[in-house]
Each structure stands twice: as structure tokens, then as C-alpha cells.
Design a binder for these strands. Sequence first.
DNA 1: ACCTGAACACCGTTCAAGT
DNA 2: ACCTGAACACCGTTCAAGT
Lengths: 188, 188
Amino acid sequence: MPTPSRTSLDEIVSAGRSLIETHGLEGLTMQKVAASVGVQPPSLYKHVASRGELVAKIIETVAGDLGESLESAVSGDDPHQDLISLAQAFRDFARAQPEAHRLMFASIPEDWRPDLTVLAAASAPVLRTTEALAGPDHALEAARLVTAWAYGFTAMEAAGAFRMGGDVDEAFTFGITTLAATLASRGF
Amino acid sequence: MPTPSRTSLDEIVSAGRSLIETHGLEGLTMQKVAASVGVQPPSLYKHVASRGELVAKIIETVAGDLGESLESAVSGDDPHQDLISLAQAFRDFARAQPEAHRLMFASIPEDWRPDLTVLAAASAPVLRTTEALAGPDHALEAARLVTAWAYGFTAMEAAGAFRMGGDVDEAFTFGITTLAATLASRGF
DNA sequence: ACCTGAACACCGTTCAAGT
DNA sequence: ACCTGAACACCGTTCAAGT
């Protein structure tokens, strides 16, 4: 006699996500997730194979959301402006959910690395924009330059690593402006 | 009647560091550290207040080592070449100890953020180089641009986030070459 | 087919007791 | 002054038993 599910994968992932946001990765415990979805801890294993798989699924969800944010930040008309908008959207996302954001490229045990197909999809608007700016020959390398900078900057900002004074907003503007100008210049 | 110390803070930090390198942050347990220095877990608390404080001390040690690596990478003669050498040294460091490296700007509970004075010292050679390249008015912003890119790139590389094909080494060279050329150009 | 309670091995940390 | 064993609250995960 089957018992109907009292929770769901979506509910579990979403509960885990908000636990991570409030208490960090180490604050994500199966016991707290279970309590938060109203079930006993062992029941979670009917929906998810392990804590690691849950973390991976959470990261995939986050990457999907980031992709949507980036996609809606570009217009396609002005690649120079699009690159700036992409950086801004990336930073907004990082600030809105810093823990989840850092997790995307975080230190994750081999076994449960997330499926980064979603992340590849998320990078599509960046690639389109750098291709328009720097040309097809350097589109991928340019995308990696911009993405690495944007991720590094926001990760360091979230970690409180900018402690030498100066205006962090200005440093961000300086960074994206410099990058956009260089990529658009005829060096390529 | 005092008993002589059977271990030391240095020994504990170093044991913790190698545990992190082999098993990641979640693999750093007080029990394993204790076993590794030949003591019972409660004894560790005579040398360190908590696991968090231990992690913070480990990060500070790593930051100090990174600083030394960077310092010995610059000659002071040719800022353009120095910037490239700094990036290379940064990447070598990240590859030699990826877990510790990512930890430097990682998701750490508020309470036990490391003392980043050491990290400020580590950034001194970068600042000197960007000042020589981009001038004093933009030295800090330029340093943040380069550091954010270098950290983001190496963190993503370590996380296996570059999965869209292409040559990662080339992307690294493209990045640092572009940055060095732009900062040295007379835009500033 | 999903949920539960009991159980296991493992955590971080405290504390009284030893030397 | 440092180390220890016992203890506590908390982990992830398994599994037989319930419905």
C-alpha cells in the first residue's frame, strides 16, 4: 500500500539552498533539511542519494538561475554595453546570494561535482557578447578573461578580501570598463 | 608538576594543512589532526580554541607562503614582465596546493575569518608592479583587476569549470598578456 | 512506495581527573 | 601545564519494520 510522498526533490533542494544561504555549506545538514521539509532524516534518502548529491543539485539550480539573470541582461544591440550589463548582473547575483554563488566554483569533493552543462548554458550570453566584441578567433579566451575576473572579484568581495581601502565600486567599474575597452580595441 | 608539550601549534597547523590538501576542508577533523600529531582530540584545545581558529591559522600560513612566492617572482626592473611573472607564480601556487589556495577567499563563517594582514603583505609586490605600470592614481584598482582575474581563473581551473574546449594555457596567456598590455598603455 | 525508529560510526567540544 | 577518558549533543547513513 503505497504512501504518498510527504515531500519532493524540489522542496528538498530549495530547503537546502536556503540553509546554505543562511548558514554556509557546513550549515547544510541532512537533519536540518529534514526538519525544514517536515520529515525524518532517513526519508531524504528516498529522494537524494547523499548529502553530496544534494549539494550538487543545489549548485546546478543556482547555475541555472544565474544563466537566466545573465540572459536577460543582454540586449544584443551594443556588445560593449552588454558586457558591462553582464558584469553588473553577475555582481548583483553574487550579492543577492553570496554563499550559493561562491559554491558554484567551490571546493567540492570529486565524487559530487555538479553537472556543469547548466553552467555552460549560463555562459552562452557571455560568449555571444565577447564574440561580437573581440571576434570569433578570441571569443572563448575573451569570455574566460571576463568570467574569471568577474568571479574572482565577486568572490573576493564576498570574502571581505578587499581591505586596503579605496572604493570597491570604483574598482569594479575600473575593471569592467578596462576589459570592455581592451576587448573592443583593434588589438584583435 | 607540569607535563611537557607533546605537540605544538606549528605541528598542529601543518598537520591540518596537509589534511586539507588531501581531503578538502570537510576532511579536516580534529580527530584526524589529533591522530596525526599523536595526541588525543581534547588536547588540541590547549593549543587552539576551536576548529575554526585552526582553519583561520592555516589560511594565514598559506597566505604568508603565497606572499613569499610572489615576492620572489618580481625583479623590479621590468614591470610588464613582472606582472606576467606574478601571474605565473600565482598559478603555480594554486596548482601546487589547490585546496589551500581556494580556501584563502573561501566561504568561511564570520567568526573565524583569518587575519588578512598577511594577505595585505602578500599583495605588496602586485601593488608595486601595477603602480609602475599604470601609475599611482590607478595602482590599487589595477592591482584589484589583476588579482581578481588571477584568483578567478585559478579557482575556476581548480574547480574544473573550463569545460568548453579550447586551450586553458592559451586562455591564461591571453588573459595576462591582455591585462599587462592594457595597463601599460597610455589610457592612464 | 514512502516513511519511521533504532542503530552505527563518526563529529566538535567540555570537563574533571591524572601526572 | 599539558594530557587523558568519559561524556554530551550532533552529524551522515543504513536497515528492518511499519503503513
